[in-house]
């Protein structure tokens, strides 16, 4: 048992080109949190159930705990750190966050839903948010907040 050799991966992170050294088997969530210091993405379950680590890969939401960092080579990655604070007002008012551990993932999914208004024709907000577990709010504060959120694309 020894430390593994690092490999180099290039990607676009929150609009910026980055080249980083990672272990081949490293999870994207660990790269973000422990190598890059982007601790906004949280680990809630480590198996893609809770959504606290939601990021966008080429514009699509993904659970960073289920993705190896090598898989995002050459792709565009966006994390909670890219979200504008001004866009969070209605979720703040509605009580969308309590303990805050699920919140970054909730906000990422919420902003993605707002960027895709066509989804509202076929799905309810409650269906669309079902991939983000929250244990504090009972979801009403989140759903009300999203209904009023305006996330810039």
């Amino acid at each position: 048992m020894s430390k593994t050799e690092l490999i180099s991966v290039s990607l676009t992170l929150n609009g910026e080109h980055r080249s980083i050294e990672i272990a081949p088997q490293e999870r994207l969530l660990d790269t973000l949190r422990y190598r890059l210091g982007l601790t906004g993405s949280k680990e809630g379950c480590g198996e893609g159930e809770c959504g606290a680590c939601t990021v966008y890969i080429d514009g699509l939401p993904a659970n960073a705990c289920l993705v190896l960092t090598v898989q995002v080579r050459g792709r565009a990655l966006e994390t909670i750190e890219s979200v504008q604070v001004d866009d969070l007002g209605s979720m703040h008012v509605s009580g969308a966050t309590q303990c805050g551990a699920c919140t970054p993932g909730v906000v990422m999914t919420a902003c993605w839903i707002k960027r895709h208004p066509e989804l509202a024709k076929t799905h309810t907000l409650r269906e669309l948010m079902a991939g983000n577990l929250c244990r504090c709010t009972g979801y009403d504060g989140i759903i009300e907040g999203i209904a009023g959120t305006d996330c810039a694309s």
Partner: peptide
């Protein structure tokens, strides 16, 4: 609230 919503709160 904003610190939590923006992912800046440090656990």
């Amino acid at each position: 609230g904003i610190s939590k919503l923006s992912g800046r709160e440090r656990y």
